[in-house]
Computed example of a mutant assay.
Amino acid sequence: MHIEIDQDRCCASGQCVLTADDIFDQRDEDGVVTLLDDAPGDADAQARAEEAAALCPAGAITVRA
C-alpha cells in the first residue's frame, strides 16, 4: 500500500486525523493534511488509511495497492 495526499485539495476537515492519527496529521498554521506514514505495514493501519480516504470530503487522499 502507498498513500498520497494532495495538499492543494485538502479542506482541513481533520477526518483523516480522527481516523488514523498515526498516519495523518495537520499543519498547525492552516490545518492542511500532512502525511506521517506513506506506506503503513499492518492490516489495521491499512484499513484505517482506506477509511480516511473514503471519509475525506475533498478527496485529497489516494490509497494505492
Rank of each mutant, 00 (worst) to 15 (best):
I3K: 00
E4D: 09
F24N: 09
S13C: 15
L55P: 02
G41T: 13
C11N: 13
F24R: 10
T19R: 06
D8E: 14
G31W: 09
L35W: 00
F24C: 11
V32I: 13
G31H: 02
D38G: 10
A39P: 09
T62Q: 11
C10L: 09
L18D: 15
E29F: 11
M1L: 06
Q7E: 14
Q46K: 05
M1F: 08
A45L: 14
Q7H: 08
G31T: 01
L36A: 02
A20W: 04
E4W: 01
L55S: 12
R64M: 11
A53T: 12
T34I: 14
D42R: 05
T34E: 14
A52V: 10
L18F: 14
D8M: 06
A52E: 12
T62A: 12
A54T: 08
T62N: 02
D21Y: 14
A47N: 12
C16W: 00
A43P: 12
A43W: 05
L55A: 14
Q26F: 10
P40W: 09
A53V: 10
A49P: 02
C16L: 00
A20Q: 01
D28E: 14
S13D: 15
Q15S: 15
A43C: 04
D22Q: 05
D22H: 06
D30S: 07
P40M: 14
D42M: 03
D22K: 06
F24E: 12
